[in-house]
Computed example of a mutant assay.
Amino acid sequence: MIICSDAAWKEDLRAAGLGWTISNQELGLKLARSETRNHVGSPLVAEAMALLAALRHAKTLQLTMVTAFSDSQELIKSLNGRPSDKHLYGVLHDIMSIRDLFSSISFYYVPRKNNGEADSLAKRALTTSEPGLL
């Protein structure tokens, strides 16, 4: 299964829109989801939260093998090496914990132009949120 995730962040509100897709062309399966989160400290943390939400969704679907794509190079480097942003540690810990629940998982960078659906979902989640929720 292929997971693509992205986030949109609004600095003045410290809010993020998270978007992700889960797909398998062979099975003809494509799911798209989004949500909004408050009290998000940075765009990088928002990107990590989007990936975490996607992985949690994949686990509820009882998926065991996933390949995850994000257009955040820094996030992918942190997942495949050493984290560089101390604000990311908590979310990275959660991602690493859920990672162990999959029999196979890998993380890859994808250019933003190739991550359009997740990007659109994240932006839409952020811009269509009710102001009272933020």
Rank of each mutant, 00 (worst) to 15 (best):
I2C: 10
A7I: 12
W9R: 11
K10W: 13
L13D: 01
A15H: 01
A15P: 00
A16Y: 06
L18I: 05
T21G: 04
T21D: 03
I22R: 06
S23N: 07
S23D: 08
L27Q: 14
L29M: 11
L29G: 01
K30C: 04
R33A: 08
S34F: 01
E35W: 00
P43N: 10
E47N: 00
L52E: 09
A53P: 03
A54Q: 10
L55E: 06
L55T: 08
R56D: 13
R56G: 00
H57Y: 12
A58V: 02
T60Q: 10
L61A: 03
L61C: 09
Q62T: 07
T64H: 06
M65V: 07
F69D: 03
S70H: 08
S70P: 15
D71T: 02
Q73C: 01
I76H: 04
G81K: 13
Y89F: 08
G90I: 09
I95W: 06
I95R: 07
S97V: 12
R99H: 07
I105Q: 00
Y109W: 10
Y109S: 03
R112V: 12
K113Q: 13
K113P: 05
N114E: 15
N115Q: 14
A122E: 12
R124N: 11
A125C: 13
T128D: 03
E130S: 04
